[in-house]
């Protein structure tokens, strides 16, 4: 419990900075929305002069994209990018920082097992992520209600925002698993940025063929498609299962790896 409290205290500042920047990012985007909605309304007016097939083709797309939730899905892509970096960074650093800051011998001579160290740190990291997401969700709901002209489905909004936590947990587990394989990890940020950007770009490139369902398993950013969530008001369970498997495997590897690891002291 002491370890948990200590970790939470040391994570407080960074979690606060991440939360604030994610809220600022989402609010800045959402502030653009009212102008966009009026543009869309004007364009729909213009469309009424076009033949039926053209209207059909564009109209449906427009209604989804120019709605608040459709617009928010795009904003949300950047928020998940930030959130993923936060999660990965947390995962890579939380176990490895003891050897980096030369406090590993101090921690390991305490009468606690290595697995309880991992448990306490994992719990603290999860708490930090959940707290970040809760505050973010509360703030963004307020902003969204302020800019939305018509109503929007609160349940769908929650479902979309919940995927932030899932993606963060996937990257947290990934980061933890990666960090136990390095004897001494010096540069946390380049590993986490590299991995997250790698998956992000992979996901962006995959997005170009919409039909390729198998390829979506390659990038966690593609597991939760906001437009499908809006359409179905639910998740795609096969991708959800893939996410759960990654998290479980990552955590198992980090326990196994950390317990056996030769930790450099001093």
């Amino acid at each position: 419990m002491n370890m948990y409290g200590h970790e939470l205290k040391s994570l407080r500042k960074s979690a606060l900075i991440w939360t604030c920047s994610m809220i600022a990012l989402a609010s800045l985007f959402l502030a653009v929305y009212p102008g966009m909605a009026s543009d869309a309304a004007g364009f729909k007016q213009l469309l009424s002069g076009y033949p039926e097939p053209v209207r059909e083709m564009l109209g449906i797309d427009l209604d989804t994209v120019a709605s608040l939730l459709g617009f928010y899905s795009m904003v949300f892509a950047f928020v998940t990018l930030c959130g993923a970096i936060q999660g990965m960074n947390l995962g890579v650093s939380i176990l490895s920082k003891e050897s980096r800051e030369r406090t590993a011998d101090f921690l390991l001579v305490k009468p606690v097992s290595r697995s309880s160290i991992v448990t306490a740190k994992l719990a603290a990291a999860c708490t930090a992520l959940v707290a970040t997401d809760l505050v973010f969700f509360a703030a963004v709901s307020v902003v969204a209600s302020a800019v939305a002209a018509g109503g929007y489905s609160g349940k769908t909004f929650l479902l979309i925002n919940l995927t932030l936590l899932f993606i963060q947990l996937i990257f947290l587990a990934l980061g933890l698993a990666v960090s136990v394989f390095f004897a001494r990890l010096k540069n946390v940020l380049s590993i986490s940025l590299g991995t997250v950007f790698g998956f992000y770009v992979l996901g962006a490139l995959l997005a170009s063929d919409a039909g390729d369902e198998a390829a979506r398993y390659l990038s966690p950013f593609k597991y939760f498609d906001s437009f499908r969530i809006i359409r179905d008001a639910g998740y795609e369970w096969s991708y959800m299962l893939a996410g759960i498997l990654i998290v479980a495997a990552g955590i198992a590897v980090s326990y196994g790896g950390y317990i056996r690891k030769d930790i450099h002291a001093g």
Binding site: V32, G35, M36, D39, A40, F43, L46, L62, V65, M74
Partner: peptide, 11 residues
């Protein structure tokens, strides 16, 4: 061609 700038970016 007639589509507003913001909508094009959005799509």
């Amino acid at each position: 061609e007639h589509m507003p700038f913001s909508l094009k970016a959005l799509l």
